[in-house]
Amino acid sequence: MTSRLNPEDQRRVDEYLSAPQHQVERRPFRPWLLLLLVVAVTVGLGLLSRLLSGLVL
């Protein structure tokens, strides 16, 4: 994809993106861990709601 910026603006954008604070190493995204976390939170909140309803009713 070609840039719609003029060359001077593109150079400034490239300099900004190549600065050290924008070069952070990130761990790879793990969708199964996210799914496990969502399921665990959902089950935990469901159990908590059943416990609270048992105490109230």
Results as ranks from 00 to 15, higher is better:
Met1Asp: 01
Met1Gln: 05
Thr2Lys: 10
Thr2Ala: 09
Thr2His: 05
Thr2Asn: 09
Ser3Ile: 05
Ser3Tyr: 05
Ser3Trp: 06
Ser3His: 07
Ser3Asn: 11
Ser3Gly: 03
Ser3Met: 04
Ser3Arg: 08
Arg4Asn: 02
Leu5Val: 06
Leu5Gln: 14
Leu5Lys: 04
Asn6Trp: 05
Asn6Gln: 09
Asn6Phe: 05
Asn6Ser: 07
Pro7Thr: 10
Pro7His: 10
Pro7Arg: 13
Glu8Thr: 10
Glu8Ser: 04
Glu8Tyr: 12
Asp9Arg: 15
Asp9Ser: 08
Asp9Asn: 13
Arg11Ile: 02
Arg11His: 06
Arg11Ser: 08
Arg12Met: 03
Arg12Leu: 14
Arg12Ser: 04
Val13Thr: 11
Val13Asn: 01
Val13Lys: 14
Val13His: 07
Asp14Asn: 12
Glu15Arg: 14
Glu15His: 00
Leu17Pro: 00
Leu17Gln: 10
Ser18Phe: 01
Ser18Met: 06
Ser18Trp: 06
Ser18Tyr: 02
Ala19Leu: 13
Ala19Ser: 15
Pro20His: 11
Gln21Phe: 07
His22Tyr: 15
His22Arg: 14
Gln23Glu: 09
Gln23Phe: 12
Gln23Asn: 15
Gln23Arg: 15
Val24Thr: 15
Val24Cys: 07
Val24Lys: 15
Glu25Cys: 06
Glu25Gly: 08
Glu25Pro: 05
Arg26Pro: 00
Arg26Cys: 09
Arg26Phe: 13
Arg27Gln: 11
Pro28Asp: 14
Pro28Gln: 08
Pro28Gly: 12
Phe29Cys: 01
Phe29Pro: 01
Arg30Val: 07
Pro31Arg: 15
Pro31Glu: 07
Pro31Asn: 04
Trp32Pro: 00
Trp32Met: 12
Leu33Met: 05
Leu33Gly: 08
Leu33Gln: 10
Leu34Tyr: 07
Leu34Ser: 08
Leu34Phe: 08
Leu35Arg: 10
Leu36His: 06
Leu36Gln: 13
Leu37Val: 05
Leu37Trp: 07
Leu37Pro: 00
Val38Ala: 14
Val38Glu: 03
Val39Cys: 07
Ala40Val: 10
Ala40Lys: 03
Ala40Asn: 02
Thr42Glu: 01
Thr42His: 01
Thr42Val: 14
Thr42Gln: 01
Val43Thr: 11
Val43Pro: 09
Val43Ala: 09
Val43Asn: 03
Gly46Met: 06
Leu47Glu: 04
Leu47Thr: 04
Leu47Gln: 07
Leu47Tyr: 02
Leu48Ala: 15
Leu48Phe: 13
Ser49Asn: 00
Ser49Gly: 03
Ser49His: 03
Arg50Phe: 13
Arg50Val: 14
Arg50Leu: 15
Leu51Ser: 07
Leu51Lys: 04
Leu51Glu: 02
Leu52Ala: 11
Leu52Arg: 04
Leu52Ile: 12
Leu52Pro: 01
Ser53Leu: 12
Ser53Asp: 04
Ser53Phe: 08
Gly54Glu: 03
Gly54Ser: 04
Gly54Tyr: 06
Gly54Leu: 10
Leu55Arg: 07
Leu55Val: 11
Val56His: 00
Val56Lys: 00
Val56Cys: 00
Val56Thr: 02
Val56Pro: 00
Leu57Ala: 11
Leu57Gln: 07
Leu57Val: 11
Leu57Trp: 09
Leu57Phe: 03
Leu57Gly: 15
